[in-house]
Design a protein around this nucleic acid. Structure first.
Length: 888
RNA sequence: GGGUAUAUAGCUCAGUGGUUAGAGCGUUCGGUUCACAUCCGAAAGGUCAAUGGUUCAAAUCCAUUUAUACCCACCA
């Protein structure tokens, strides 16, 4: 007999086990021994950013996905979990820039594009290695042979194809628009990359000039240097007479012509009810300017400083300095009427928290409203991107769990504006567009896979939004890495065997990137493939600290998943993150919680140790062993119920309840009760092994390491990760269960009588579904305190099932209410009560309807309604009576 | 400003119209050489946020209120 350590030590086994898994080749579906017509199950791993290390968000995602993947693999499906990483353009570049500045005091421009990119690539490679090591540490059973990277050759090729195809049908266009500009990253941002911070701001009310007829209000006086109009509400009597007039002012930028325009969107109550229109630096103002044909004057540059158009006095100043200077000047001139402190939301860059500057700029956009028709694509038959992406969720082709997020998804899409996809970043997919004579009148543009022939073609310097490539992730990763042998896109798609795993089965990710990523995958995949990217979206919540706060460096409450793994083991961390939470709900993670599951893992280890060391021979038990006592029958039927419940829960993505059920069975029923019995009633080897074997498989998706480590004791057999999932046997008849309980109670009495259990000690009666036996008097009221078995007269075995077990305590008649597994008594009682209640109701209804006066006088609808009710209740009654009969 | 959640034991959470509302942790008490102190047993602890309504029956459905969280918009 092999020595099994007293306590489970994850550190000793995890790496070894992972290596064993990886060496087995079973992460790769091609190596699974499968039934011929096996279904597939596939998940694309959301690629972690190559920006450093994994955090708890990654850990929870890996735990969920590995759980689903292992479960489906055990079910015998052709299972693929495809790993990879994301280059994360802005994020990665920003990180390297920060390091560079910290270490060498240099900017990317000091290094030059080539040298800088070299550094980024090195950093990204290093990050990848760290990340992949950590993904392994989490026990992820993903197929490393299929690992992909958003910047690898194949994917880059797909990205270009996507751009070109979208351009061809007119979805991608180049245009002048107001974009969100981050002066620090020196790049555009999409609307979703802008965040808001609550800040205190000053709300100034002033006149442009002494002779200007009224004052305007703003929080950003410096932008007023670029004003070309003042907008007022057309209903506003104060200003009606000025509409259409033009005034000339000079606040430092030279002569500015200000036209008074009317616009419904102006709030008459806010400030003076007059709004200075700065077309170049506000989205709304820009729209007004378009409507009214106003000039756009750009007074703030890409570097966040005032431009020449802002006037000599202000040129070159940062916006805040310019603001101060202008306000001082206005004060001197006595033009300021009011200065108020207000709370406002400042737009900031989601990467570097720099204030975002809206700027007019020429960029590439995806048109979300243009209707297009594509051959062989059912989603795009005179449909826009918006409509197609709405349709797949509305038609429930894609299911979102939890469903409440569908609402958010719809609202986001409905309000979606054209998506700006060009970024002024060096690291990423360079836009596949070449120019000749860029910016001149005779400019030529070429869009294609490679540079066109001929001289003087220069490729667009910009790169694509990182989400443009991630949006293609589910299918691009399944296409052959090498496309060289294919002549066309169609050939490539046809020749890529792995596309059999597409659409992927599940997309599991955090709800925080529903818009960023999930929505874009839907958009781009339906467009490129005429296929949905995934069938189900499972969204998990954010991981928070013990107090429910977001983890952040500044709060110092960041939990490193690796620390927890070191302390408690991967299994404990995994199950701690999944238990006690539901889809879309945030999870709190803290030491005590993980510790609790470490204790459980150790418990399972010891249960196994006990069984494996006490049986005479360790072997697999294929068929249900022979039942010798009622305790055997009980534990085996309980196991069946557990299998049934767990399977049902996992199929419905209810992970937490599944682990609860398993834990309850393992700890309360098996360890605390049945193992104790087995010490007295001998000859239970087969049953113990039978249960252990199945229990390990059931637990495996949750806690893969410890289950595999224990499984190693079944030496002759393959890994637990490729066993077949247990199926529930036919449920034993309820009467048997009933008798079983009675017998177990008898058993306890006998044990007492033989002095094998101390008579004074209260007996553990948790055997019944983990619940206590409670005593009721004949009124059905609880007699406080636990049933002392000593005081009970156990019923005869022949007692009719469906009734409580009765007895006498101190002269009072009592009933044991059997809860949990055997709930016949409970169910009977409940049904009887309900039936009585409904009967009562029915008789009242009948009486009412039998009353001629009521039928005559009451409105017809009410009478009809009552009739319908009566019918419904009668049906219900019948159902219940049948139910009651079936129980009896 | 618009929206979406959430509110159940000291804490973290189950409970998806039907008995007497549950679990884990924590607390208190008792035990423990014999698989496990990373253990075992027991107890205490609840106006199910408030109010009103629907229903034969409400923690559960509806409305209002209060509190909290998140998302979106606006930022004149």
């Amino acid at each position: 007999m092999k020595e099994i350590p007293k306590a489970y030590n994850p550190q000793d086994v995890e790496d070894k086990i992972y290596k064993k898994w990886e060496d087995s080749g079973y992460f790769n579906p091609d190596n699974l021994k499968l039934a011929e017509k096996a279904d597939y199950f596939s998940i694309s791993m959301p690629p972690p950013n190559r920006t450093g290390t994994l955090h708890t968000g990654h850990a929870i995602m890996l735990a969920y996905q590995d759980l689903m993947v292992r479960y489906n693999r055990l079910l015998g499906k052709k299972t693929l979990w495809l790993p990879g990483t994301d280059h994360a353009a802005i994020a990665t570049q920003a990180k390297v820039e920060k390091e560079l500045y910290k270490k060498e005091g240099k900017t990317r421009h000091d290094l030059g594009k080539e040298n800088f990119l070299q550094k980024v690539v090195e950093f990204a490679e290093e990050s990848k290695n760290i990340i992949n090591k950590q993904v392994r540490k989490m026990g992820s059973s993903c197929d490393w042979s299929r690992e992909r990277y958003t910047l690898d050759e194949g994917l880059t090729h797909v990205v270009k194809k996507a751009f070109i195809k979208m351009h061809e049908v007119g979805l991608i266009y180049r245009g002048d628009r107001i974009v969100n500009w981050c002066p620090h990253c020196m790049s555009t941002l999409s609307d979703d990359e802008v965040e808001y911070q609550e800040t205190k701001g000053k709300f100034y009310t002033f006149k442009y000039a002494e002779d200007f007829p009224f004052a305007i209000s703003t929080t950003r006086p410096e932008t007023k240097l670029g004003d070309t109009a003042v907008a007022v509400n057309p209903k506003d009597k104060r200003y009606k007479k000025y509409i259409g007039q033009t005034f000339t002012i000079n606040i430092g930028a030279g002569e500015q012509k200000i036209k008074i325009i009317a616009d419904d969107s102006v709030d008459m109550k806010l400030g003076t009810g007059a709004l200075g229109v700065t077309p170049a630096h506000s989205m709304i103002d820009y729209e007004m300017a378009q409507k009214n044909n106003l000039p756009v004057i750009k007074v703030i540059g890409e570097d966040g400083k005032m431009t020449a158009l802002a006037g000599k006095k202000y040129q070159g100043l940062y916006v805040l300095a310019a603001r101060e200077k202008l306000v001082n000047w206005l004060e001197e001139k006595g033009l300021i009427e009011k200065e108020e402190e207000i709370d406002m939301n400042l737009s900031v860059c989601y990467r570097c928290s720099t204030a975002v500057e809206p700027l007019p700029s020429k960029q590439w956009f995806i048109d979300v409203n243009k209707k297009i028709t594509l051959t062989d694509n059912k989603y795009f038959q005179n449909k826009s991107i918006k409509e197609a992406a709405l349709g797949v969720i509305k038609d429930r082709e894609i299911k979102i769990i939890p469903q409440k997020f569908e609402h958010d998804y719809f609202r986001w899409l409905e309000n979606l504006r054209d998506w700006c996809i060009s970024r002024q970043i060096w690291f990423g997919h360079q836009i596949p567009v070449w120019y000749k004579n860029k910016g001149r009148l005779n400019e030529e543009i070429f869009v294609g896979m490679n540079a066109p022939k001929g001289k003087h073609w220069v490729q667009d310097e910009d790169t694509l939004d990182t989400w443009f490539s991630s949006g293609l992730w589910t299918f691009s990763t399944l296409m052959d890495k090498s496309f060289v042998k294919y002549n066309s896109w169609e050939d490539w798609v046809k020749g890529s065997k792995d596309l059999e795993f597409h659409p992927t089965s599940v997309m599991e990710t955090g709800y925080d990137i529903l818009f960023f990523w999930v929505a874009r995958m839907i958009i781009q995949t339906t467009f490129m493939m005429g296929e949905i990217p995934f069938e189900t979206v499972y969204l998990h919540g954010l991981v928070r600290d013990e107090k429910g706060r977001k983890m952040s460096k500044s709060l110092g409450n960041v939990v490193d998943p690796l620390d927890l793994i070191k302390k408690y083991g991967t299994d404990a961390l995994r199950v701690a993150m999944i238990t006690g939470t539901s889809a879309g709900a945030d999870t709190r993670l803290y030491d005590e919680k993980v510790e609790g599951f470490r204790n459980f893992v150790n418990k399972l280890w010891n249960i196994s140790r006990y069984i494996l060391t006490s049986v005479s021979e360790i072997k697999r038990i294929k068929d249900k062993p022979q039942v010798k006592t009622l305790a055997d029958e009980w534990i085996l039927s309980k196991l069946d119920l557990v299998i049934e419940q767990v399977t049902k829960d996992l199929d419905k993505f209810n992970f937490s309840p599944a682990s609860d059920v398993l834990r309850d069975f393992t700890w309360n029923d098996l360890a605390d009760w049945y193992l104790e019995i087995s010490k007295i009633e001998k000859d239970k080897d087969e049953i113990l092994l039978y249960i252990l074997e199945r229990l390990l498989i059931l637990w495996h998706p949750f806690i893969p390491f410890v289950t595999e480590a224990i499984w190693e004791n079944f030496e002759a057999d393959d890994l637990v990760m490729v066993q077949s999932y247990p199926k529930a046997e036919k449920r034993v008849k309820e009467a048997e269960e009933f008798n079983l309980i009675v017998d177990i109670i008898s058993l306890i009495r006998n044990l007492r009588a033989e002095n094998r259990i101390e008579p004074a000690k209260k007996v553990n009666v948790k055997l019944i579904g983990g619940k206590n036996v409670k005593l009721l008097n004949d009124q059905g009221e609880i007699i406080k305190g636990l049933a002392r078995i000593d005081n009970l007269e156990i019923l005869n075995k022949g007692e009719k099932p469906g009734q409580s077990v009765g007895g006498v305590v101190s002269g009072v008649e009592v009933y044991i209410l059997l809860e949990g597994l055997v709930d016949k008594a409970k169910e009977t009682k409940r049904l009887t009560k309900e039936i009585e209640s409904i009967k009562n109701y029915i008789s009242r209804l009948e009486k009412k309807l039998g009353n001629q006066e009521f039928v005559k006088n009451a409105p017809k609808e009410i009478v009809d309604k009552e009739k319908v009710k009566l019918k419904e209740q009668k049906e219900k009654l019948q159902k219940m009576e049948e139910q009651l009969k079936s129980i009896k």
